[in-house]
Design a protein around this nucleic acid. Structure first.
Lengths: 240, 240
DNA sequence: AAAATCTAGTTGTCTATACCAATTTTAAGT
DNA sequence: ACTTAAAATTGGTATAGACAACTAGATTTT
């Protein structure tokens, strides 16, 4: 399995060996891998060398580690459609999963420069800042921060928010919303986001979607959603 | 700068110290960092500890390493519009940069299962496979693989391809193309792609766009474009 | 003047070991 | 049978050193 005299580095060989086992189905999501010390003894290499191989696969999101427990094979990707306006809740239901939210913050704050620009407000205008973790079957999937002008949407409460923000705005306030997805980028999870978003460490890549929802050309709501890139991909259809 | 008795790991402290220096502008893109051994001696820690800090920043795309030369501060992001059909060439010109291509492969091959599905062909149907590196001001920006049914588009030559594939198809063959961006996902660069795509190692995250171009509902062309996530973000506008 | 060689410095890989922190397993005691 | 405490196991951090592969510049040779 491992050739010490190969021109390829040992950690590289082990890395590909494990990757192949995952592709073959010999290792499936959730499976526990041999411990680093077991690999080291089995292959007669240093534990640090084993660690380098595993670290690379953790960075790719194929594996994840848990201190005191072991190293496991990670889950697969889901698909996130980018077809206009699909709410996270609807999306998860469509997949047969149970969506849920955890409210992290619900405050009225003065808009900073970035938020003000996105919502076409002056800086320091009061806005709702609502931070939520989006869960599917109790697994954190995304971190979402919503900004809404406090003047436009009064009387917002935590109870309403927990239920459905979209539903409240569209049905209760009678505001039909035009949609403008603004950007999608990839980034590495930072240490502020990680504990909220990830059950386990590893899988460091995020897909970040920034949306501004418009009503008659006026920005109503600005949403930043950070999806785990190991669980999501975005799909879209444009015809002209 | 570094407190050995802090509850925070040493590598973590150094990592954030360097990150801060980049944010402050004390370190700017292209700058050479002190060598790993210099850091180790300066901070009185092991070189491997310094290495862990730097490795993390390399994985984030903030730094890149070159064997035998040193470690450098990486460049910033560009923006990639997702507004229907914008060619790489046009896009780069609009930014005031000089676009160029390097042809890696130009062959007729039998379609494998994935390609056949995307192009709605039977497996083993002959298709053009064209691999190109996309450069802006001589810096590799993306790796592009194009598949076109060989039966549909005959007489394709390398010369034509080097100029403009889109132009050739639209103007010369009179085929107006409908557009369907199919997916965007994030992934880690693999060792096959890395040497072509990246001048320097590091910055491991890719944004992968998979497009199928349609003509009257019939797939004409399937393109997989791998953009460096440290240089690109996608922007888009959908109104309903 | 050009080419080849050497040298110092850099990152890349690897070893062997040690202790810490979190978790699970085992054993002891009630 | 249950609780508690200890031990074992696992990944996390860190050390010190070694050699390989590569780069750039200086030096020597041709």
């Amino acid at each position: 399995m491992i050739d010490k005299h190969s021109p390829m580095p040992i950690y590289f060989q082990l890395e590909h060996s494990i990757r192949r086992q995952i592709e073959n189905g010999e290792l499936t999501p959730g499976n526990l891998l041999p411990s680093e010390r077991e690999y080291a003894e089995l292959l007669d290499v240093s534990r640090m060398t084993v660690r380098q191989a595993i670290t690379n696969l953790v960075n790719e999101g194929l594996l994840y580690r848990q201190k005191g427990r072991g190293t496991f094979v990670a889950e697969q990707k889901l698909e996130q459609k980018l077809s206009g306006l699909t709410s996270f809740t609807e999306d998860m239901k469509a997949r047969g999963m149970t969506p849920a939210n955890t409210l992290l913050a619900f405050e009225i704050i003065p808009a900073d420069a970035k938020v003000a620009e996105r919502l076409a407000l002056k800086e320091h205008t009061p806005v709702y800042e609502i931070k939520r973790i989006r869960l599917a079957d109790d697994v954190p999937m995304a971190l979402e921060t919503v900004y809404i002008s406090a003047n436009l949407v009064k009387g917002l409460t935590e109870t309403i928010t927990a239920a459905s923000l979209y539903h409240y705005i569209e049905e209760e306030l009678g505001l039909a919303i035009g949609h403008a997805i603004q950007s999608i980028e990839a980034a590495i999870v930072n240490e502020t986001e990680r504990p909220h978003l990830l059950v386990h460490k590893g899988a460091p890549v995020l897909l970040i979607e920034r949306d501004t929802f418009l009503k008659d050309g006026t920005p109503l709501e600005y949403v930043k959603s950070s999806y785990r890139a190991d669980r999501y991909k975005f799909t879209i259809d444009i015809n002209r």
